[in-house]
Amino acid sequence: MMSRPGDSELQDLYRELLLDYSSSASHKGLIKGAELHSHGINPVCGDEIELTLNTKAGAIDRLRYEGHGCVISQASCAMMAESLEGLSVEKARSLASAFKEMMLSKASLESLPAELEIVRALEGVRRFPMRVKCATLAWNTLLQMLAGPKGHAAEFQEVEG
């Protein structure tokens, strides 16, 4: 792996894994006629995430997204899609809540459940309180989607402050 210029703080926030995921195409694209669909936006910076999801026997069969925004918002979404595919909807919901809680707390992301192992790369974001919403946008959009009925297009909007 190539070394990057910049000091350790920059590398701690923008870990290699984060940069890889922010440009990853593996869960990109939208599912046509998806069971669940939601759109999330952070009006403060204009970051957007569109999620589509199909279930199979109570589990997340496919989770695909499109979005644009900063490295943190896009990497977080890609990591979320990879981590949650295959899990039960209930499990996904509880993991999303756990992730949000961790991002807002002082506790180390090391204690996140094993299913969210890759998400631990977002650890450095918590030292930048004004960037935490970038990391939680995808997860809030997912929770909003899972709370709504099938076939309903959910909307999530971050609020300032």
Binding site: G6, D7, E9, L10, C45, D47, G69, C70, I72, R131
Partner: peptide
Amino acid sequence: VHAHDVGTAFDLEGIAIRAGH
């Protein structure tokens, strides 16, 4: 590079700039 990532990278250099709309 997204403007907010630029803003954070500059902040780490002690440089306060604005990023956004």
